[in-house]
Simulated scan of single mutants.
Amino acid sequence: MIYGIGTDICDVRRIRASLERHGDRFALKILSDLEFKTWKARSARWPERGVRYLATRFSAKEAFSKAVGLGMRMPMTWRLCEIGKELSGKPVIVLHGELKEWFDSQGLRAHVSVTDESDYAASFCVVETA
Score class of each variant (00 low, 15 high):
I2N: 15
Y3M: 14
G4T: 14
I5C: 09
I5E: 04
T7N: 14
T7V: 15
D8V: 09
D8N: 09
I9W: 05
R13E: 12
I15F: 09
I15W: 09
A17S: 14
S18K: 12
L19G: 00
E20A: 15
R21M: 06
H22F: 06
G23M: 05
D24E: 15
F26A: 04
A27I: 03
K29F: 08
S32D: 01
S32C: 11
D33N: 06
F36H: 14
K37W: 00
T38N: 10
A44R: 04
R45W: 01
R45F: 01
W46P: 00
G50I: 01
V51Q: 02
R52Q: 08
F58S: 01
F58I: 01
F58L: 02
F58E: 02
K61M: 02
A63M: 03
S65M: 03
K66P: 00
A67S: 05
V68K: 01
L70I: 10
L70V: 11
G71Y: 07
M72E: 10
M76D: 12
T77A: 12
W78Y: 03
R79L: 05
L80Q: 12
C81K: 01
C81F: 08
G84S: 14
G84F: 07
K85P: 02
L87Q: 15
S88E: 14
G89Q: 10
P91M: 07
V92G: 02
V92A: 01
V94Y: 01
L95R: 07
H96C: 04
E98I: 02
W102G: 00
S105D: 12
S105C: 13
Q106D: 02
G107I: 04
R109M: 06
H111F: 11
T115N: 05
T115D: 08
D116W: 00
D116E: 10
D116H: 15
D119F: 06
D119Q: 07
Y120C: 05
C125V: 15
V126D: 13
T129M: 13
A130M: 00
A130G: 00
